[in-house]
Every structure is written in structure tokens, then in C-alpha cells.
Design a protein around this nucleic acid. Sequence first.
DNA 1: GTTAGACTTAGAACCAGTCTAAGTCTACAA
DNA 2: TTGTAGACTTAGACTGGTTCTAAGTCTAAC
Lengths: 141, 141
Amino acid sequence: MHHRDHQTDSVSQELRAHGVIPTAQRLRIARMVLNRPAHFSAEQLYEQVNEDGARVSKATIYNTLGLFVEKGLLRQVLVDPSKVFYDSNMTPHHHFYDVESGELADIDADEIQIGALPDAGEGVEIEGVDVVIRVRRSANR
Amino acid sequence: MHHRDHQTDSVSQELRAHGVIPTAQRLRIARMVLNRPAHFSAEQLYEQVNEDGARVSKATIYNTLGLFVEKGLLRQVLVDPSKVFYDSNMTPHHHFYDVESGELADIDADEIQIGALPDAGEGVEIEGVDVVIRVRRSANR
DNA sequence: GTTAGACTTAGAACCAGTCTAAGTCTACAA
DNA sequence: TTGTAGACTTAGACTGGTTCTAAGTCTAAC
């Protein structure tokens, strides 16, 4: 692995702040994905990370994605039954999903007013609210 | 296949009304699943359908679920990254998803007021809006 | 320097879902 | 009643996203 200043740069600090030990692979992934709105699948990330010759294994891609989700650096987006998408935008927001192209677009949380949430019951904690608007860019025009 | 009155009963008519030719397998599945609120996976349906000795193949389970979704008799619910759930409640509604147990519960559409939807753009048709509230029945009590 | 523990890796394994090719059923015509 | 066509069902092979395993690498601390 090349020697870089892995200890002091801002991405490194961001990982530490979330309880993630920064390794070369995690930094490489974090630089491509965090601090920039991005929607991507594990496979897409794998290809992007290894564009210039294989460096990071698939197992590490999956391990890192799982870890980043667990530590609050990424969210999963479930829109395609066949694979998981990840979203680096951690601000509260929702999604347009183009059923035909598979494209995802963010919707700011304040563009959708959700009224009082129904009571979930005793001792039930709400972990998150996901809104997906499925759209079709029809064969018009 | 046993002889029953496949042509005139109400389930049969419901299938025909949705453009689905009623076969013995489709009727068996429809009777277990339609006209009753139900959340289930393909695997769960496969087991339930064949409780008393194997009758309906996995391929037919998947074919039938896909057909029923296409014809508006069922909806898919994407909450678990590893498999698809199906919902026989076709009235507009949303879901609580218990992250730990995997249980799904319906929320009536009118319990969640969604404000004006953001404009999706020119010639873009909204196919559906899915709201999932992820909950955790914490380790209390 | 050694060591321990955490991380990464290649490749095997897993499993939900799809495909294939052969067989079955049904409706209908002759 | 037989033949035929088209739609459906089936077992089992296959696919592809994801996870597991076991061995190797790295690094921080002693």
C-alpha cells in the first residue's frame, strides 16, 4: 500500500468520528462516496474503485458498505428487488425512482409533508421513514 | 387435477375480471391470499400452499406472484434487502416494518398526510408512492 | 522485533429468483 | 371422439447479488 497521510486528513477524521478505523481501502471508498451526494450499488462501487487495476476486493466492498451503514455514514435504499442501492446523502430526504431506467433522485424532506405519524405502539422506536415515489418517464413527446 | 367448479365461483370470477385465466394452481393460491389482508414472501407462500404434500412448484409460485402483481391483484413491498414481500391489500396504504422481527403492519393511507408531491417533471407519470416506517420494538419490558 | 487483533483477500458457498425444455391441460374444430 | 394449438406447469439447472471461510497482511503497542 502506498504511504499517504492517512491519519490527519479530513476524511480520515470523519471516519474516526463515526467509530470507523481508517484503512487504506476504507479511505479510498470514503473519498469516492462520502461528502458528495451519490446513489450507487455495490457492483458499481466495486468497478469505480478498481477502475485503474484491481485493488479492493469484493468482500471489502461489501464489508465496508455494511460498516458505513451501521455507523451512519451511508443509508441503504430499497427500490430494486434485485439489489441494494446506497445513498451518501444522510440528510433527511426521500426518493424518486424511475422504474424504467433505475435512476434515483433525491427529494428534500421538506418537500413532502408527512402529517403526524400514526402511533406505533408502546415502547416502539421509529428508526426511519422512507418514502419512494415510483415514476415512469412515459413514451410521450 | 381434481374437478371443482372452477368456472363460476367468486375467486374465479375475480381472476377473470383482472385478465387472469383461472387454473387450479392459481385458484389455490388466490384463495389463500386474496380477499384477506396478508403479507408474505414467495417462500412462505410456497410452504403454505404445499402444507399437505407438494402440489405447486416453485416456478409456478413465482410465475403466479409476478402475474398477480402485473394484473393488479397484489403489490410488492420492498423492506428486506434479501427478499421481496407481497401484499394482498390493494387499497392505498403504507407500512410499518419491524426491523428486528421482519413483521409488516399496514397503515391506512389517510393516517399519513402527504402534502403536494414535488413536481416530477415533464411527461413523468407517478406510478405509486411507498412509505415505509422502520420501527424497532426495543429491548424494554 | 514480536505479538495480538483488526483488516483484507480469493474463491467457495449460499440462496432468492429466473430460465429451459419437456410434459399436461383445456377448448374447440372437424 | 380425436386432433390440435396454445397456455400453463413442472423439475431441475442456472444466475447473480451477497455472505462466508480460511489464510494472509497490516499496524499499534509492548
